[in-house]
C-alpha cells in the first residue's frame, strides 16, 4: 500500500533517511519505533507529503506522493503542539469539516463527547492534554485510507494516553484504514499494534509482526528493540 523505494532524505548536512526501502501493508496498526533522530518523523512526513525525498520514491496505492495526493489519502497528526489558537474546539472541527470532503462531522462530534471536550472552549485555553485530545479528534474524523500519528502521546499524562488508545480502537475502521504511529511510549500501544518497524540511523533495522515477537520470541517490544539495537 505504501512503498518506500531506496529513499534518501537529506536536510542540508544531515542525513535523515539513508537508502530506505519499506513496504507497508493495508489495514494494520503499525508502530514505527527507534531512538531520537533515527528517522521516524521523517518517515511520516514523507508519507504526508510535507517533505519530499532527496532520492528514491514514496508511493501510496501506486501513486507518487505529492501534497495533493497525500491530502486526499492521508490524515496526519503532527508531533507539534499547535493549532489555530483563535478557534474554539467546535470551530476547529467546523474548519476541518469545511476543508476536507472526507471529514466525518458526526464522528468528530462523537469523539468530542467521548474525549469530554468542551466545544465552546478556545483552543488557546485548553490544557496540553485536551489539545492532544482535540488533535486526535481531528485526525480520526477523516475517512481516509491512511492515518499517521507522530508522537501522539508526547507529554501527555497516562489518562489522556489511555483515552487515545481506546479512541483508536473505537473510532478507526480497521477494514479500510491503516494507522502508522511513531512513539517512545511503546508500552501504551503495544497491545494494539499489529506490526512494528524498528529504525536506526535512517535505515530499517527490522520489521516484525507483534504476535511473532510476543509469542514466538517471548519478548515485549521494548525488549525486542533492545535486542535488535545491540
Amino acid at each position: 500500500m505504501i512503498e518506500f523505494k531506496n529513499v534518501t532524505k537529506k536536510y542540508r548536512n544531515h542525513l535523515a533517511l539513508d537508502d530506505f526501502t519499506l513496504s507497508l501493508p493495508k489495514g494494520k496498526i503499525i508502530g514505527v519505533v527507534g531512538e531520537n533522530g533515527s528517522g521516524k518523523s521523517t518517515t511520516l512526513k514523507l508519507i504526508s507529503g510535507l517533505i519530499r525525498p532527496s532520492k528514491g520514491s514514496v508511493t501510496i496505492e501506486g501513486e507518487d506522493i505529492t501534497r495533493k495526493v497525500s491530502s486526499a489519502k492521508v490524515s496526519y497528526l503532527s508531533e507539534l503542539d499547535v493549532y489555530y489558537s483563535f478557534y474554539t474546539v467546535g470551530e476547529t472541527i467546523g474548519y476541518y469539516a469545511s476543508l476536507y470532503r472526507d471529514f466525518n462531522r458526526s464522528k468528530a462530534e462523537e469523539i468530542l463527547d467521548y474525549m469530554k471536550l468542551d466545544r465552546s472552549k478556545k483552543v488557546k485555553d485548553l490544557s496540553k492534554g485536551n489539545r492532544g485530545r482535540l488533535k486526535i479528534a481531528v485526525n480520526l474524523s477523516r475517512e481516509v485510507p491512511v492515518i499517521l500519528m507522530d508522537e501522539p502521546f508526547s507529554g501527555l499524562d497516562p489518562m489522556v494516553r489511555d483515552s487515545i488508545v481506546k479512541g483508536l480502537l473505537s473510532f478507526v475502521d480497521f477494514q479500510t484504514q491503516t494507522i502508522i504511529i511513531t512513539t517512545h511510549e511503546i508500552k501504551e500501544i503495544e497491545p494494539i499494534l499489529d506490526l512494528v518497524i524498528l529504525i536506526k540511523d535512517g535505515k530499517v533495522l527490522q520489521m516484525e509482526e507483534v504476535e511473532e515477537i510476543r509469542i514466538h520470541q517471548n519478548l515485549s517490544i521494548v525488549e525486542w528493540m533492545k535486542k535488535e539495537y545491540e
Binding site: L50, S78, V82, Y84, L99, Y100
Partner: peptide, 13 residues
C-alpha cells in the same frame, strides 16, 4: 509560520 504544517496539509492548492 508557527502553523505551517497545518497550512500545507490543506487540500487546497
Amino acid at each position: 509560520h508557527k502553523t505551517m504544517h497545518l497550512w500545507l496539509q490543506s487540500p487546497l492548492s
